[in-house]
Simulated assay, not measured.
Amino acid sequence: MSMIQRSPAKSNLHLSNPELASSAEQPNVALRKRKHPDGDLFDAFNSFSAEIRNTLSDWRQDLSSNISNISANITSIRNDLDILTATTSEIKSEINDLRSNQTKLEKRVLTLESSQSAVNNNLTELQTSTQFLASQYDDYAKKVAKLETGHINADKTSDAIVLLESKIDSLEQQARQCNLELGNVPEKRGENLLRLIESLGSLINVQIAQSDVVSVHRVPHAQPDSRRPKNIIVKVSSRILRDNILSAFRLRKGVTANELGLSNHEKDKIYCNEHLTLSSKKLFRECREKTKQYEYKYVWVKHATILVRESDNSPVIAIRSHKDLCKIKPRNK
């Protein structure tokens, strides 16, 4: 059987509401107008809005100015912190050197039975110094962290930096407590500085064995164009030995390069002093100039402290900072 196909019924959806079309075509339908707010109230609202905008703009300008000032202060503090960070890195290097030296001394204890007691004392002293330096470094690291986070008042930042610099200089000086600095020693190619130190000990009647010398080397001058020989820095095993060498050197009242076989001129005098930091050397130089100006008789360094005396019967004056230079006065004043 054949299937009969029927066409679908036409949709009358578009004719479901014929009244809509008729109503849209009616021309007499009235259109309603939107109501506007009262004119005075609208003007007052606009004026109030303008005032608020002006006030907010002024606040933004003040806030921007304050933020700029704060940013400038933070930049200044960060620059100072960079300097402190570099200095603390040097301190950390010195601490590592101390710990390395301590390890070397521990190994020497096993072979030097005759001097075991003295070496043990030196180890105890080095351990105490290392622990003290480590604790001080931790304290300064915490203070630097506070500076970075802004916990310290900006008005006190400069005073804190001066105090930190003073303490850091003190730590650097303490790390050099076993050091000697020899000046005006003629340089020679292929020189053996260790033998030179042994010869110097024989000359001043102080026995200096090779095991007593931790390190010895020359250092460049602060002024690169200086024609003087480079100074020699000697690090010995203990502060007691360092002080004995200094006392014997001063008791002999000078040593010349000719006596060590380094020069044919008897006037080439060699100087032996404590190894001071750069700031202490500068203070010592200024102190010598002022004592010379006011005809003071004595100026010397003992345990990294600068001491002056006007005459044999005058009291000793300690100069620890630039503020103390005012203590050096003309005579009878």
Rank of each mutant, 00 (worst) to 15 (best):
I67L: 15
H303P: 05
K253L: 08
I70M: 09
T124Y: 12
E286W: 05
D312C: 06
E266H: 09
R227T: 11
L203K: 12
V213L: 02
L20M: 09
E286Y: 10
D38V: 01
R32C: 05
I317L: 11
D324R: 02
H265A: 14
N28E: 12
K167A: 10
P27W: 11
Q223C: 08
H322E: 14
L182W: 04
D38F: 01
S65V: 08
V299W: 00
S93A: 12
E295K: 15
G39A: 14
D159G: 14
H221C: 11
N79V: 06
D82I: 03
L307A: 05
N184F: 09
T88I: 05
S64K: 11
T130H: 08
C287G: 11
V162G: 10
S226L: 04
S49W: 04
T256P: 01
E181S: 12
K297F: 07
R320D: 08
V301S: 02
E266N: 13
N184H: 06
G201V: 00
R189E: 12
S71R: 09
L194H: 05
S93V: 07
I70Y: 06
H36I: 02
S68C: 09
I328R: 01
R309A: 11
L182Y: 00
S23Q: 10
R288M: 09
A118K: 08
G183K: 06
S22W: 11
N122S: 12
E25P: 03
A86P: 10
A209W: 07
N192Q: 06
E187G: 04
Q116P: 07
G190T: 04
K167I: 03
A141Q: 12
G183P: 02
S76I: 04
G201D: 01
V308D: 09
I233M: 05
P224C: 06
A222Y: 07
D43K: 05
A24N: 04
N179R: 05
S166N: 12
Y298N: 12
L15G: 11
D243L: 02
S93W: 03
D58N: 15
T103W: 04
T149N: 09
N121R: 08
N192H: 02
I161D: 05
H275D: 10
L56D: 13
I245D: 01
G39C: 07
F42M: 11
T305Q: 10
S321P: 03
P220F: 02
D212G: 03
Q177T: 06
S279A: 15
I77V: 14
S115A: 08
A44R: 13
I197G: 03
H217W: 11
N153Y: 01
K269T: 04
T305N: 14
H221F: 03
R32A: 10
I95D: 15
D138G: 08
T87E: 15
T256S: 12
G190R: 10
E90A: 10
G261K: 07
N28P: 01
S129A: 13
F249K: 04
L163W: 15
T87R: 06
S93P: 02
